[in-house]
Amino acid sequence: MDLQGVGALVAAGVAAVSVPATLLIGRWQTKAAVQTARAATAQAEATYRAALDAVRVQGLNEYDQWRRGIQRDAYASLLQAVLNYTEHATNVFGQSMTDPHQFPALIAASKPLATDMSHKRLVVRLEGPEEVSAAALSLVDTAEALMQTCRDWASSGLARTLLDERGSAHRREVDRIKDLIATFRIRGYWSLIGTPQLPDDAAAILRELRSLLRAVDMSGGHIASLCNEQSAGAYGDAASTLDSAIGHFLTVARTTLHRGPHPVTDPLSPADPSGPRQ
């Protein structure tokens, strides 16, 4: 075989050996490129998820702060409404001793305050939580109890004032009314009005009282005010109960606002089947 033939055979052999080597090297290179791409993809996904988690946490924190702000405003608004209402109740109590005739106007002025307090209480009930809502209900009830005490006191004062004013022209009728009221109160008949237990003599007193009041230009509705006379100590007891209710409401509201983050549903959480899949 000449040299050209030998060279051709050698070149063919080298080519035969180099082809698998080239394929092997190419496979290694491809595998390395795939691994690098996978690593880059994993890194990019991890970076994306970390950024997404950070945004999610920030969003939840901002939502929690927003919720606390809404609740704080609701609690403060209710407390202010209660204070406005009970301050007016105190005015009703005080005016009844200085100018009893102001009673109807004062009671009319209390109605918008009562409506506002009731509305603020409903807002607290909506915002929750339940323990704050319960404390708010107790607070409003004690405020209403204080107003009722002041209302009864003022109504009684106005009725006595009107009766005294009738005395100059109707002395005999007024004296008789006072005697009957004293008898009615001493015997405890007041609590039996409207019940089957009201004795016949009490019913007879009521009929006479209505007749006498009409004679002095007063209505039968004043009988309740004249009989249901409040003591000054009743106001102090109601005010003390209100102070306790305010303190309890503040304690419960403060505990709620200062506790850990509110539980919220994260719409992006993997546990939420309705959330988007990444």
Rank of each mutant, 00 (worst) to 15 (best):
G188R: 08
G94R: 14
Q230V: 05
L79V: 00
T142H: 08
A109L: 12
V10S: 10
R254P: 04
A154M: 05
L257I: 00
A114G: 04
A253I: 01
D272M: 13
D179P: 10
M1S: 08
D272T: 10
G7C: 07
G260P: 04
V252H: 02
A234R: 06
S155V: 05
D53T: 04
E144Q: 15
G94M: 11
E173L: 15
N228R: 07
P100D: 02
Q197V: 12
L268T: 03
V123E: 05
G157H: 13
A33K: 15
L180C: 09
T90F: 02
T90L: 07
G188F: 07
I205V: 10
H258S: 09
L9Q: 11
S191T: 13
A50Q: 13
G220I: 00
T41N: 08
L226A: 00
L137N: 09
R176P: 07
S269I: 04
L60N: 01
L163I: 10
V14C: 12
P104L: 06
G128M: 01
G26F: 04
R185P: 07
G69Y: 04
T22G: 14
P20V: 02
S156Q: 08
A37Y: 00
K31A: 07
T161L: 12
P196H: 02
R38D: 09
P199S: 07
V264M: 14
H119L: 09
Q71F: 00
V264F: 08
S191E: 15
T265V: 08
D99E: 14
P267N: 01
H170Q: 12
A135H: 01
V55A: 14
R27F: 09
S133L: 04
R210W: 06
G59V: 03
V55R: 14
Y48A: 11
R121P: 05
A12D: 15
A15R: 11
A16H: 09
V17I: 09
L213R: 03
T255R: 15
A114C: 07
C227Q: 01
P112R: 08
D64Q: 06
A234H: 01
R38G: 02
P112I: 03
L122Y: 04
A76K: 07
A15N: 08
V34F: 10
L158W: 15
L206M: 09
A12Y: 12
A42D: 11
S110G: 05
V17D: 12
G247D: 01
L60F: 01
T98F: 12
T256M: 10
A33F: 07
E144R: 15
I177P: 03
A234G: 03
L257E: 01
W190L: 15
T265K: 14
R172Q: 15
D200A: 15
W190K: 13
A76C: 05
A11P: 07
L158E: 14
Q230H: 02
P199M: 02
T90G: 12
A40R: 08
A145R: 12
D266F: 02
M117S: 09
W28S: 13
G128S: 09
E131G: 10
R56W: 00
S155C: 11
A8E: 14
A32C: 05
